[in-house]
């Protein structure tokens, strides 16, 4: 059985849909912690609600990925680069889970129920725990920067394959 040369449509949709969502979430997050403008509250509430959506999407995405045949990396790629590629994808998945989970945890321990598009609210602790709030608040910030760095590496890797190695790795996700 030969491996496919392109990612299945479901995986491409998850990839680009979540790419757009993550870009929007990271941008919103970095702006809203600084801004005193009237839109801040709206963006803050949307950021939290979309965080739940991101957690649902990445869960479905992981289940979907485990059921799919993935295109193989080019045989010509050195083993070390293959290992780095694999590790970076594990890390990306890890961060895609850790971001919404740490975000929700900081809200939970600060005693702030998350309102999801005015439909329902996620529960929060009845009594605030400032120490655990701080742990998850700092984690959320550090992981966000780690995710930005990893996305840059991911993009650089894709461009390296396309422009320098001139292989089909980038095209397999288009």
């Amino acid at each position: 059985m030969t491996k496919p040369t392109r990612f299945p449509l479901s995986m491409r949709l998850f990839h680009w849909g979540m790419a757009a969502l993550m870009l929007a979430m990271l941008t919103a997050g970095l702006l809203m912690v600084k801004s005193l403008e009237p839109w801040q509250l709206n963006v803050l509430n949307l950021h939290k609600a979309f965080g739940l959506l991101a957690l649902l999407l990445v869960s479905l995405r992981l289940v979907n990925r485990l059921r799919q045949q993935l295109p193989a990396l080019p045989d010509s790629l050195p083993a070390i680069q293959k290992a780095i590629a694999r590790a970076s994808h594990y890390l990306l998945y890890g961060l895609m889970f850790a971001m919404p989970l740490s975000g929700y945890a900081m809200q939970y321990f600060a005693g702030r129920p998350v309102e999801v598009f005015g439909w329902f609210r996620l529960p929060a602790a009845l009594e605030v725990n400032i120490g655990l709030y701080s742990l998850f608040r700092e984690m959320h910030g550090i992981l966000a920067l780690a995710l930005v760095a990893l996305i840059m590496l991911h993009i650089a890797g894709a461009l390296h394959h396309h422009v320098i190695r001139k292989d089909k790795v980038l095209k397999s996700m288009l």
Partner: peptide, 17 residues
Amino acid sequence: LRARSAAYAESYRRRAK
């Protein structure tokens, strides 16, 4: 009013840390 959330959050984050 709209500015209070971000300012309170920054103060809270600093002292919590």
